[in-house]
Amino acid sequence: MSGRPKEYDDDAVIDAAMQVFWSNGYEACSTQELCERTGLGRGSLYHAFGSKQHLYEMALRRYQERAIQTQAGTLSTPGSAKDKLRALLQWGMDDDLDPANRRSCMALFSAMERSSKDPAIDRINRAYVDQLEAALRHVIETGQRTGELRADQPPAQVTRAFLASYYGLRILGQSMPDRAFLQDVVEGTLAAL
């Protein structure tokens, strides 16, 4: 005799939980809100996903999978290295300034909120940054080889400086949502390349 059939879709539950965690962060997210948004009762939620922590890890991975697809896709479009890097910065700025969706990058927020407290979240966030760094490094190495970008600094150093500017832009997009200010950050970042 088999058990009662599952009446929910794991992917839909993870997507719903991702929206809650993305809006509230981990600490401010209540089990009650997770239950309301996923449509599962507390017992079903914990039976299916084990804990709030495990559900958060799954939701964070889902967010990061989608984000890296978008970012790597932006970096692999036709055009010059600077065009690709500008497109990524512009995408981040536009995303953060979207009036219909005023919330920060979930990956960035999780790094600030949880990475120093939780080794599992730290590993997930490091793997994500490593993927983004690899995609950026490819663009930067190509730009250095073609002479479009300065080649007087090692590609790893240039890539990491760009990453710092990119994440700084994302934080400023939340704390200083002024398009002209942020556009200056974009232009300054690109001028340094």
Score class of each variant (00 low, 15 high):
residue 24 N to P: 00
residue 126 R to C: 03
residue 190 L to W: 07
residue 178 D to C: 10
residue 5 P to F: 03
residue 173 G to H: 01
residue 130 D to M: 11
residue 123 R to D: 15
residue 54 H to I: 09
residue 5 P to Y: 04
residue 25 G to T: 07
residue 60 L to V: 00
residue 16 A to H: 05
residue 168 G to Y: 03
residue 51 S to R: 04
residue 10 D to I: 08
residue 102 R to M: 04
residue 121 I to Q: 02
residue 49 F to Y: 15
residue 169 L to N: 05
residue 7 E to I: 07
residue 81 A to E: 09
residue 68 I to Q: 11
residue 187 E to H: 07
residue 109 F to T: 12
residue 70 T to I: 14
residue 12 A to Y: 06
residue 100 A to T: 06
residue 83 D to F: 05
residue 22 W to S: 12
residue 185 V to A: 10
residue 165 S to A: 14
residue 189 T to D: 11
residue 82 K to C: 11
residue 100 A to E: 14
residue 129 V to L: 15
residue 72 A to C: 11
residue 160 R to Y: 01
residue 4 R to S: 13
residue 181 F to R: 08
residue 123 R to T: 13
residue 185 V to Y: 05
residue 85 L to A: 04
residue 15 D to M: 08
residue 70 T to W: 06
residue 30 S to T: 15
residue 38 T to S: 15
residue 132 L to W: 01
residue 186 V to Y: 02
residue 34 L to F: 01
residue 1 M to N: 09
residue 125 N to H: 13
residue 42 R to P: 06
residue 153 Q to P: 01
residue 44 S to R: 06
residue 183 Q to T: 15
residue 31 T to V: 15
residue 186 V to K: 03
residue 84 K to T: 03
residue 68 I to N: 11
residue 179 R to I: 04
residue 13 V to F: 12
residue 151 A to H: 08
residue 143 G to R: 02
